[in-house]
Design a protein around this nucleic acid. Sequence first.
DNA 1: CCTGAGCCATTTGTATACAATAAACGGGTC
DNA 2: GACCCGTTTATTGTATACAAATGGCTCAGG
Lengths: 205, 205
Amino acid sequence: MILAGELPPGSQLSEEALALRCAVSRTPVRDALRRLEADLLIRRSESQRSFVADWSDDDIEDAFELRAMLEAQAARRAATRINAAQLEALRVHNHGIETAIAADLPDISTFLEHNRAFHEIIVEAAGSPRLASLLTRLIEQPVVWRTAQNYDRENLHRSHREHEELVAAFARRDAGWAASIMTGHIRRAYYAYLDAYAVQRQAAE
Amino acid sequence: MILAGELPPGSQLSEEALALRCAVSRTPVRDALRRLEADLLIRRSESQRSFVADWSDDDIEDAFELRAMLEAQAARRAATRINAAQLEALRVHNHGIETAIAADLPDISTFLEHNRAFHEIIVEAAGSPRLASLLTRLIEQPVVWRTAQNYDRENLHRSHREHEELVAAFARRDAGWAASIMTGHIRRAYYAYLDAYAVQRQAAE
DNA sequence: CCTGAGCCATTTGTATACAATAAACGGGTC
DNA sequence: GACCCGTTTATTGTATACAAATGGCTCAGG
């Protein structure tokens, strides 16, 4: 609901109201709120009331910066640990991306799914449960989720080419190369988001 | 209880048993288990049963590696953002450390408290709620907690000197320097832990 | 018109009961 | 003797009730 924008930033989330809305009791709602709080999608007041987090520009930059650092670390580790099956899976998913964006009207949904799977395999190949745990907190966030919605053809194809580079770096077992590409890959996503956001802002004015 | 070793690694944690032991109902116990699971102190089976996580050597190395990376990033950011009051607080806490370890019998408990406060100020000065959130997951872990218990006088004083270097880097607003020192600081802690652990292992045999 | 105190409404924290599911055990069969 | 299946038991998931704490509102007073 937060990602879909049904719950505007800053609005209060009452456990009971959510329970009613989801047709469950407060108990599972509480569990979900605690998790979302850990993911920083929800902030809690001193008196433990829950509100949808509102993301400042600094927050967004912060999230991308950390994501770049952690994903680069994942790529660095994965380069020397990835196995043949995982490498092949990366190629398959990136081919899926290529197909999804080849049409006149790119299939963003399919792109997102393959993109998610691609990055997930890298995290898995990194073989660090802690790193995986930290990253899942950063990627399930509204900004990241919406970024690709605003990708133009140019950015979609660039993303695909960067994935190809990553596969090449993994195939060569070059940790430094893989980390560098990944850093650039995430930073580019950040600037793509900024551009799209700037457009949205102008449209809103 | 996990940190104190009362609950051995691998042992199952029944919500009801813990509730009885802590004289509360299952509800708050469940909340705690969910948080500890996020902190990777607890792992859950497919059927959602909880067990105390057992840490392999790789897990420990992994945790230190990530902590080094994130704390270095915190130091990097803090260097250009720290204010005079925070800088002074760092000096005060490091002086507290100096006093605590000056005696013939070092006061480890006081050392730990000042050390925790010292690192906390840096994270605060970094001004990144996300980074802070990620780091709290890594520092409340059994290995980190026990490391200082095994510090010898040499390591305690080295830690103090490294803190002094950090303060100097912050005073100069030198982000790269601060990050480098912090990386070394955490890596040294890792090797100190390894040495202490090797000693314990030999004693156990 | 502003301020503050007290009361009421809202919201969260905790306890408990019941339902659903998975593990453990035992009896039977091959 | 090993293995499969049904039953029992343990454990977690969910719903609900009540207690505690917090926010906001009203009304009195300056």
